[in-house]
Every structure is written in C-alpha cells, then in structure tokens.
Design a protein around this nucleic acid. Sequence first.
DNA 1: CTATAGATGCCCT
DNA 2: GGGCATCTATAGC
Length: 183
Amino acid sequence: MLRVAPALLGKILASRSPAGELTAGRIVEVEAYREDDPASHSHRGVTPRTRTMFGPAGHLYVYFTYGMHWCCNVVVGPPGVGAAVLLRAVEPVLGEEIMWSRRAAARTSRDLASGPARTTQALGLDGSHDGVDLLDEGAAVALLDDGNPPRGRRRRGPRIGIRQATEKPWRWWLDGNPHVSRR
DNA sequence: CTATAGATGCCCT
DNA sequence: GGGCATCTATAGC
C-alpha cells in the first residue's frame, strides 16, 4: 500500500456520467489508509460501509462523511485486507466546463478538485459508484495511465483532517502543483 | 491572506 | 449519542 499510493500520482481518473459527460483529472495528492491504522475506516473490521475496502484491489471505495460529502479511494491489497488510497486532489484534464457546473462554489480552477470531496464532486461521483472496478474500461469510472510521468517531484508528509495516527507520513503530493489541497 | 463556526446525516458503540 | 479521511461563508487583518 505504501508503494502503491505514491505510484498513483500522475495517473488519470476518468468518469462518464449517465448523460455521457466525460471528465478526467490527473492525480496530484493521495493518502494511504490500512487496517492497523487507527485513522482508517477499516481499522474496526468489515462493516456495511467498509465492505468495499476489504474487496479486490483496483475497485473504487466511496464513502459519505460530515453529513454532506462523498470521498473516493482506490482499494489496494488482496481481498480480505482493508486498505485503500484516498484521492485528495486532481488536476483537471478533461471536461473542465462540466466540473465548473458541478462545483458551484468554485471561484478559481484550483477550487475545482483540491480536496477529496471536491475531487469526488468535480468528477460527478457519489455512493452509487462504490465498488466500481476501475480497471474495467467500460465502467463509469476508470483509472488510466496516459504514459506521461508525473510533473514535479513526489513529496510526502503527515495526513490531513484526521485525529488519529496524525504522525504517520502517509500523504504524498506533487511538489509545486497548484491543485494540491494545501501548500 | 488566516482563522473560525456552522452545516448536516450516516455509522458504529 | 459522539464523532467524523470536509467544505464554505464570513470576519478580521
């Protein structure tokens, strides 16, 4: 997991809405979560919410939080192991106009997807996408590699927005990228 | 620019 | 009932 998380930097997350609207973003910030980690949803074992986290790698784990926000993760590790990588920010690469329409509160392009809930909203994702196989190119959401190496150096540091295990340096981002959630 | 408060509902104990 | 892998508006400098 700690290897996969930084490897996702620079990859593309693409989605197709029921109306056929295509949006995609380049991943610029991620965080890793795993079972032996008190901050992880999987720490307390399989529950209705975390079922997807314990499923096969490469599927999308989407959860609801703070009464209003959806956030999405890439599941990693073998079935039975509860680990995932939270997608914290993407750089828009396709369908930016559609993202503007979905993100009414955004004032600058950096507001479009600089945060996990913003990213999920900009890509039009919600709980209905929980469990989608990201490696199935026909699915509504897919994880792609366009061959371009990530721009900027990979950096790592403590995770954001958690109250447990705040010391673990399990957040990675592309140094200097303006779409990262905090700088 | 930074700091802070409030929104809002699901999950799990 | 407590807490939450967040965001936004607003106030103040």
